[in-house]
């Protein structure tokens, strides 16, 4: 895989810095991290999982729906590269899915059947604490070069910093508060996707796009708009009829 052009990398970090303003949209931010990671290192599918405070991972964002399903599959079967990176706190790089059945007996065949041939996972680390993992799925057996791995880890670190919204988290309780808030935000968005899908007779993916477009049009945070969709639908006559 091609090593990233420095100019493109600089653009992404400027975009990240622009996003990380006060009270930013955490779901859009994580969505952006997965999409940009995918583009930068030319890996077609990227997903992000977070620790739910009970020692378990929850899905937060993915560059596409297939990746989302694979992430959920790992959670459901409690097995896969993301769980390894999270549990061990160390990266999983260039794992060849054709030879990974002994390591991940249910995940490896499922990912291979989805057309992927290689997989990578990088922990989201805050010093000694691991709060989640970033997962990359490749369709060729080509490997991430060391330079690419550094870039992806930098993006994983940026995701961590953005999530915690503070340069130094002095106390574990702030970590718990922020993570629980981010996790609940994801749940709110899923509920709103369901409500929008039913109201408009569309699929949940189309409902997500509708929510994103509407949030951008009205300059609102995705989660704030999603919350209104499911708690005060009558105040959104255009969106919720």
């Amino acid at each position: 895989m091609a090593t990233v052009a420095p100019a493109r990398l600089a653009e992404v970090f400027v975009e990240v810095a622009d996003t990380l303003v006060d009270d930013f949209d955490v779901i859009e931010f994580l969505q952006m991290i997965t999409t940009r990671t995918s583009e930068l290192v030319a890996v077609p599918a990227v997903g992000l999982l977070l620790d739910d405070g009970r020692g378990r991972l929850q899905f937060m964002a993915a560059s596409d729906e297939e990746t989302r399903l694979l992430e959920l599959f790992q959670i459901q079967h409690n097995e896969g590269p993301c769980l390894d990176a999270f549990t061990l706190g160390t990266p999983v790089v260039n794992a060849d899915l054709a030879h990974a059945e002994s390591r991940w007996p249910t995940f490896a065949p499922r990912a291979a059947a989805s057309g992927f041939r290689s997989v990578h996972a990088l922990p989201l680390r805050l010093r000694s604490t691991v709060i989640g993992a970033l997962n990359l799925f490749g369709t060729d057996a080509g490997s991430l070069e060391p330079g690419d791995v550094k870039i992806v880890q930098a993006l994983a670190d940026v995701a961590t910093i953005g999530l915690l919204q503070e340069k130094t988290i002095r106390h574990g309780e702030v970590l718990t508060e922020q993570l629980q808030h981010a996790l609940n935000s994801r749940v709110v968005i899923e509920q709103a996707k369901g409500a929008l899908a039913r109201t408009h007779g569309i699929g949940v993916d189309a409902a997500f796009e509708l929510l994103r477009t509407s949030a951008r049009t009205h300059n609102r945070k995705l989660v704030d708009l999603a919350r209104v969709v499911v708690t005060e639908p009558h105040t959104l006559p255009g969106l919720m009829r």
């Binding site: 929850q58 899905f59 959920l72 509920q191 996707k193 369901g194 409500a195 039913r198 499911v230």
Partner: peptide, 19 residues
Amino acid sequence: GHYVVYQAQGMTMVDLGVS
């Protein structure tokens, strides 16, 4: 953590017209 359950909650809210 099953997102289908959360989506179904939003759909059922609309279907039933309830909170």
